[in-house]
Design a protein around this nucleic acid. Structure first.
Length: 453
RNA sequence: UCCCCAGUAGCUCAGUCGGCAGAGCAGGUGGCUGUUAACCACCGUGUCCGUGGUUCGAGUCCGCGCUGGGGAGCCA
């Protein structure tokens, strides 16, 4: 007999007989001569209530079932006689698949996130983390759906690379040499190789052939960042669009955010509700605001003016030419506008070489999407498509023309205006769940000094 | 990398002024005619993070170290 997932059973319109379910015991309550077992199989947040009567042949074994044990239960699903759930399963045959000794670390009570991080192999079995990872999966699917619906092609860019996309951020070195050998020519690639910090440069090449493309893959930063918003390994979504200017780029970014929020609200109401109730009381109002209002847009120059005249003391002073600090971004999106904001046209000196120089020759066509609670969730730009301007900008930033010869060459043959952006996938999961630590939205997070599991 | 905070039972925590190491949950046993983080009774549990010091006496005060967390920087 084929097993039925609990999600399907709980959504059933009518009683079913017989059914087979398999899952893990979340909790058990005993009456005098029978027991209630809450069984969860991960298909949804809710448990299925199993009623195990004292007449069952192995009832003595059932009586000793512990939290975490794996079961196979066959029986009939009927309308529940108790309040609190629509359906329950009256067990006719209950088999213990895997027992769970009393050292099982999860209990039917709240644990701290810090403790659960030390048992990352077990924590997906909790309500909160189960919901977070189901939402994460749906979100990944929604990313593909969004781009596929708009005629974008999903492309794969290299994980191993010899190029440093932005000249910013420490990279993880990849080598097959033993530590004593320092002759790079003997290394696997014969040159210094690293894990990618962005697929953008390669994605541009693909956009200049396929039109609209996107990448969605892992990214690696060796920065010694110890914050709740940074991980050494994270996932990034990077669309790249030919014949697209900054304005259209911003429109796609806004549409993407809105699509992702709406999809999760529509398709994960139960999981989302857990976060709205127990993690962040302001979650639903914030999400509704994200789908319901247009993102505020303002040039960097105006953002600086607002910050300069703000009735608020900042730790870091702000003036034209200074980068926006976390406190400045937070003020704009959380206090001044109280909603999503896109800041664009940043001073040329603040941004990487590939961003397109504006006509004022002082700013580049860059944009950052800022959201309450997270800060920067998307960063993008129109790319410099004019060969000579790009080349001279690379010279000024001391980047080797030889090393990026292929990137420059794309500007020689049929170069066109094109734009793109990068969206931190984990930050989107944080935005959607109210989870404040990136280590809690990645099943097995990697941060400095942490690579267990 | 810098600044700040914390570390007590398997877990979550309390521990007053420096004076006998505590509770709830989890686990065990028994009870309960349908429970909802079930409930009731009883039972066990400690390198008080480590180390050095002050003191008649340190979980408590001081130094150093380790681990965890928060903030900043960097960024997504």
């Amino acid at each position: 007999m084929k097993r039925t997932k609990i999600k399907e059973l709980l959504n059933a319109e009518a009683a079913l007989d017989p059914v087979l379910v398999k899952g893990w015991v979340r909790t058990k309550r005993d009456a005098k001569s029978f027991s209630f077992i809450e069984l969860n199989d991960g298909s949804c947040l809710a448990n299925l209530q199993i009623v195990a009567a004292g007449e069952l042949a192995n009832y003595d074994e059932i009586r000793h079932l512990t939290t975490g044990a794996a079961l196979s239960v066959q029986g009939r699903m009927i309308a529940s006689q108790g309040a609190g759930q629509k359906w329950e399963l009256q067990a006719q045959n209950l088999v213990l698949i895997g027992s769970s000794p009393d050292t099982y670390p999860l209990q039917k009570k709240r644990h701290t996130d810090e403790f659960l991080r030390t048992i990352a192999h077990i924590r997906p079995r909790t309500n909160k983390y189960g919901s977070a990872f189901r939402i994460r999966a749906l979100l990944a699917h929604a990313v593909h759906q969004f781009f596929n619906d708009r005629g974008f092609f999903y492309i794969h860019t290299p994980i191993l690379t010899a190029s440093d996309c932005e000249g910013a951020g420490e990279m993880f070195r990849v080598t097959t040499l033993s530590p004593q050998i320092d002759n790079i020519e003997e290394d696997f690639f014969g040159v210094e190789a690293n894990l990618t910090v962005s697929g953008q440069l390669e994605a541009e090449m693909m956009a200049l052939a396929l039109g609209d493309v996107y990448t969605f893959g892992p990214t690696f930063r060796a920065e010694n960042s110890n914050t709740r918003r940074h991980a050494a390994e994270f996932w990034m979504v990077e669309p790249e669009m030919a014949f697209c200017d900054l304005k259209e780029d911003m429109a796609v970014a806004e549409d993407l955010v809105r699509h992702l929020v709406r999809t999760v609200m529509d398709q994960c109401p139960d999981d989302l509700n857990l976060f709205a109730r127990f993690v962040d009381k302001q979650l639903m109002p914030r999400l509704e605001k994200l789908v319901g209002t247009c993102f505020e847009r303002l040039p960097y120059t105006e953002a600086v003016k607002i910050l300069e005249t703000a009735a608020q003391d900042f730790e870091y002073p702000i003036s034209y030419g200074a980068d926006l600090q976390a406190e400045h971004e937070r003020f704009l999106t959380e206090t001044y506008f109280n909603g999503p904001v896109i800041v664009y046209d940043y001073p040329e000196t603040l941004k990487p070489f590939y961003m397109r120089l504006n006509d004022d020759a002082r700013t580049v066509a860059a944009m950052d999407v800022l959201v309450p609670g997270i800060g920067e969730i998307i960063g993008g730009s129109q790319r410099e498509e004019r060969h000579d301007i790009l080349a001279s900008r690379m010279d000024r930033m001391a980047l080797s023309r030889e090393k990026y010869w292929w990137y420059l060459e794309s500007r020689r043959y049929g170069s066109v205006p094109h734009s793109g952006f990068g969206m931190g996938f984990e930050r989107m999961v944080m935005l959607l769940t109210g989870i404040v630590n990136i280590r809690d939205v990645i099943p097995f997070p990697r941060t400095p000094k942490h690579i267990d599991f």
